[in-house]
Each structure stands twice: as structure tokens, then as C-alpha cells.
Design a binder for these strands. Structure first.
Lengths: 336, 336
DNA sequence: CTGAAAGCGCTAACAG
DNA sequence: CTGTTAGCGCTTTCAG
């Protein structure tokens, strides 16, 4: 292990000079800087993370709490996590991966031990147990998702309310008058995850404005569940011509079943999905969709966190505007 | 920030005593132990991670390098990552999330800075650039995946060779004489990711033994790619009755296209998948499959790493035995 | 069974 | 522009 002292000696300067060359926190003459840098290279020096953290009380680590559950669409989580990790690196931070398993205790542990300078929480529930602790700790934090009460919190999320409205608007504009929303698994609603409910708020409001009738059905993944759900929908509302799907693992089952039942997409029924762009364009019917901007969310969360750590804090809710891309799954409502 | 010194004072003992209460590295009288523990509770003390790392030269952090690419099946990666994180916590370690982005440099950085005590590498290529560095650093490390040269390395992986053989054996046993393997995207093979090639080794060997003809075609995800691939296969080998699919995003397209072409599964063609259990059981046809034991792989990797850190090192290759589960997608070859 | 004290490697005043 | 020095909070000998 090469130490800073050894570098200093090798370069014929004091330890502090080496430190300042590294941090750039005071001006160094061209000559010594170069000498020091050469020594660093030659000796293969890397500053010791623990020592640095102790002395500066900054670990340059951001903790990321990902949900443990598997009933959410995993690729989105992963995409966010990767975006967080790469963006963090670009700002000189490493990312500590925490699973929801430890629950609120993790917040205490990380904050208490100064292991991380800041935290990013994913999969935030409306009344999340971790939030009170987070507010106590005084550590920089950003939520990906939106809880019921956002006072003193910084949040980043897709504007799901606008998303729901946008989907209804699109279908209504095409003349659809009866719409069914196929939602996440019931457990997601029970847990009061914000985004699912917010989407429905937007859907209902816009439906009222446009005079569209809406039916909302949670749905588990897989074919069996989808089959039951679909049967119920057409039972209760035979005139349904528009679908909004907010459940990645229901997309393909839905399309398959509609096909089996002889309902052509988009001639007989239109489908609008709320899902990652890739899924929408690779489905068996290229789906009109509102994309979930996973990368953007991860990136913005880190940028917010970094801003806070730099003192340029903003306790704000940042909602990303939804964008609807029209593909092959939506068209004019059939004339009856 | 409560410090150990404050706890010591509060409990009326020396700092070292508190430290030893925490580490259990020497015997403490019942009385003082309780007093100290009470003080820790009351003051809400958490040991400072940086100080601890500095003094003990152990960070209690395991670095996990996940691939940046998105052409691999993401849920498996995520499942491994989560298993790693939870298993690590159970052993008192936290997990640092590194993306492939930094490449080999990350190995140097982490090892050099003593940020992590050990590393787990995922998505190892046959001739991985990170391996030479890893061998130099003398840090504990475990690979998830199998490179060409495993000397001095500890690896955990599914036995893909046995997996390939097992799939062929199953189909051959059902009387299939012409088999097609639908593989990962061509890029995966170009990169010489070990598992894909090893699967084919097993497939070819067993095919030879059982007198089965094999055709291997890489395939990108999505319907368009699958359609081309399938057309080519039936062009070249019209008698193909068995499929082995090792590409999660090709599974559903394959099933759909076979259906469209009027080929019944499993009456006309049998399909065996190599994929996560969940995907197999939720597909539009319940798939006979060899499961990818993601959790088990993550768990074993951590256990190996922890063993190494504890001095009970084992430079070994641990291959998990494949298990084939028969579901509804495979059956006797049709009589011609 | 418990204390005292010497660092671990680095940062950041404080001096010049 | 550079050096000296006092810690950061903890672990771990060395004494007792």
C-alpha cells in the first residue's frame, strides 16, 4: 500500500502539498504539481478511502435503496440503478447497493455510520416508513417516486398523473368512449405505491373532462390472470374499445388474448401502454406508449443529490413530463 | 455524531473496552458489557465506517461489478445482484455497485483505495481484461461465470455444458432427431461470453452421442429477428422438431410464431428453454426448462468471498448442477 | 478482566 | 506558493 507520505517523500514535498495537488483546493506551482503527479504515477498511488472519509467526513458514496420485491417490473429498476451508478461515477461518487430487506433500519445504519454521504430511495410508498427517519438524519436524500407528503423532501418521478391523462386524451381523441385500465398487481395498490394511484387520478380526471367511461382492473402477471381480467372487463363493459396497460408483464398476454378472441388491434380495440420504450417497440404489436424514462430518472436523482451535497440544495418535486409515442396499436374507434 | 469515546465516558469505561464489547475480541465481564450496551442504546451510537476501515484495514464492503450492457437478460442480473446484496448483509458486508463502464480501471481503483475488501465480477468473458489485474491485486475475488483460464481464480456458475447436454438428452429421449438451438444475440458470441459457448459444447457432444442433428442460430430479441431466424431454420432443416432456446427475449416470439404457422407445441414441435424459472412457467405455453439459479449463484459467490476473507479460501470452480423441469412444451417427436 | 496510548492515512487549519 | 501540525474515530498492541 503506497501512502500519501511516501508520495510526498518521493516527490520531495510535504504531505499537504500532495493532498492539495489531489484536491486542487489551493494553487500549486506548475513545477511541483508535475513532480507530484509523476510520483503518483510511478508509485501507483491511490488515496485510501477510509482515511479520506475519516479526515474529510465525506465518503463519496451514495447509498441506493432498491426494493427487494419482485412484483415490480425489474428491468426498470435495473435501468435506474445502472443510470444512478454511472451518473454517480461521473460526479466522483460510488454507489452502495441496499435492498429493502433491512427496511428503515438501513437508513439509520448508513446515516449513523457515515458510510454514505447521501441516499437515493426507490420504490417509495405513499406513507413510507423510511421517510421520518430520513428527515431526522439531515443527510442529503432524493426519492425516486412520490410519497403523500413531500415537505422537506426532494423527489424525482415521471408525472404519472399527466401520463394517465395523456393516455385517455389520446384514446378519447380517436373517438373511444369506453376505456379499461389494466393495472399493476393488486398488491401494488394495497401497498399504496404512489405512481399507480396517481396514474388513475389522471385517468379519471381526464375521462370526466372528455366524457369517457373508465373501468380499472388490477392484474397479476401471466396468462391465466390476464384471461380472467379480460373476461370480466368485456362482461361488464362489452363496448370497451380502448385499453390502457400499466403492467409490463401483462402486455404480451393481453395482445395474445385479444388476437385469440379475434379482436384486431388497432381496428377493433386500441391499446396504449405505460412501459419502457424497448418493451413497447418489441412487443408483438408495436405499441403506442408513454415511455418510462428510467435512465433520466436515475440521472436526475443523482444530479439532485450532488447538488445538495454541494450546498445548492433544492427541496423540490421534479416531475418529468410524459411523452406519448404513437405506434401501431392505437387507431380510430370502430364505428358501431 | 456520537463517538466511541463518548460512549466510553457515558459508561464509565475506557474506549478500548467499548471497542472490545463491539467486536467481541476479548472477554468482558457481564456487568460492564451491559453497561456499555445500555450506553450505546441510549446515545444511539453507530461506529464510524471510515474510522473503522482506517484502523482495521477492512471496509466490510464487497464490490459487485455488473455489466453495463443491456443485451443480456436483465432480470437475471438483478436477481443475482439482489441475492448478493442480501447474502452479503447477512454476513455483515455492504455491497458497492460498480458498472462495467469503468472497465478494468475499476478493479485498480477499488483495490488501490481499499474501498472494498473483495470483489465479485459478473458477466465474465472468456478472456476478460479484468482478470490479470485481479490476480495482481491479491484481493479476494469471485467470478460469476467462467473464463477460459481459471488458475488462481474462484468461480461460481451454472454448469452450462451439462445444461446443454441435458436439454439434448431430454429431446433425444423423446425421439427428436433434428434439433435447432436458438441462441443469444450474435454479439454475445462475438464477445466470447463463456456460458453461451459452453452450452453449445454440451449440446454438440450429447448430440453426437445420441445421433441427433443440431443447428445453432444466434438470434436477437424481438419478433422480426425471430421470424427471420425461424424461416432460415425450417428452410435448412425442414425436419426440425425440437428447439432449445437460450435467449429470454426470444421465447415469446418463438411461441407466437410457431402458433401462427400452425405448428402445435408440443404435438408438432417441442421447445426446451434455458431461462429463469418464472419466465418458463409464465410463458404462453408452460415451458419445459432448465432454470438459471440466479439467487443461488449470487448467494454462493458471497459465501465463497466471505470464506476467502476469513482465510478459508478455496480457489475452485463451483458449477451448479442443472435441473430440467418438464412442463407443457415438450413431448414425443411426431411420427412421420 | 480493563486501561493507556500509539497509530491507521488523510485533510485542513495555521503559519510562513 | 509550500510546510507543519493537529486531529478525524477507531483498533490493537502493550501493560497491569
Amino acid at each position: 500500500m503506497v501512502t500519501l507520505a511516501e508520495v510526498a517523500q518521493h516527490a520531495g514535498v510535504s504531505a499537504s502539498t500532495v493532498s492539495y495537488v489531489l484536491s486542487g483546493k489551493r494553487s500549486i506551482s506548475m513545477a511541483t504539481r508535475e513532480r507530484v503527479e509523476r510520483s503518483i504515477q510511478q508509485l501507483g498511488y491511490h488515496p485510501n478511502a477510509g482515511a479520506r472519509a475519516l479526515a474529510s467526513s465525506r465518503s463519496n458514496i451514495i447509498a441506493l435503496m432498491v426494493p427487494l420485491r419482485t412484483d415490480m417490473y425489474v428491468p426498470v429498476m435495473m435501468e435506474i440503478a445502472i443510470a444512478v451508478a454511472t451518473t454517480a461515477r461521473a460526479h466522483g461518487y460510488d454507489v452502495l447497493l441496499l435492498t429493502g430487506e433491512e427496511g428503515p433500519a438501513a437508513v439509520r445504519r448508513i446515516a449513523g455510520s457515515s458510510l454514505a454521504d447521501a441516499m437515493i430511495l426507490m420504490d417509495v410508498e405513499l406513507h413510507d416508513e423510511r421517510l421520518p427517519l430520513l428527515l431526522e438524519t439531515e443527510r442529503a436524500a432524493v426519492l425516486i417516486g412520490l410519497p403523500a407528503e413531500t415537505d422537506g423532501l426532494t423527489c424525482v418521478d415521471l408525472d404519472f398523473e399527466a401520463t394517465g391523462a395523456l393516455c385517455v386524451e389520446h384514446l378519447a381523441g380517436l373517438g373511444h368512449r369506453e376505456i379499461a385500465v389494466i393495472g399493476e398487481a393488486a398488491a401494488v395498490y394495497d401497498r399504496h405505491t404512489g405512481f399507480a394511484e396517481r396514474t388513475m387520478d389522471g385517468v379519471r380526471t381526464k375521462a370526466q373532462q372528455t366524457g369517457v367511461r373508465v373501468l380499472h382492473r388490477p392484474c397479476d402477471g401471466g396468462y391465466a390472470a390476464m384471461e380472467r381480467t379480460l373476461a370480466r372487463i368485456f362482461d361488464e363493459r362489452p363496448g370497451t374499445t380502448g385499453f390502457i396497460v400499466q403492467n409490463e408483464s401483462a402486455v404480451e398476454p393481453l395482445l395474445n388474448l385479444l388476437r385469440q378472441q379475434g379482436r384486431a388491434v388497432p381496428e377493433d380495440v386500441s391499446v396504449v401502454a405505460i412501459c419502457p420504450q424497448q418493451l413497447a417497440s418489441e412487443a408483438s404489436v408495436r405499441l403506442t406508449s408513454v415511455a418510462i424514462p428510467a435512465q433520466e430518472m436515475g440521472r436526475r436523482a443523482v444530479e439532485q443529490v450532488v447538488a445538495k451535497l454541494g450546498g445548492r440544495g433544492t427541496d423540490e418535486v421534479e416531475l418529468l413530463a410524459p411523452e406519448l409515442t404513437i405506434r401501431a396499436s392505437s387507431g380510430p374507434a370502430p364505428v358501431r
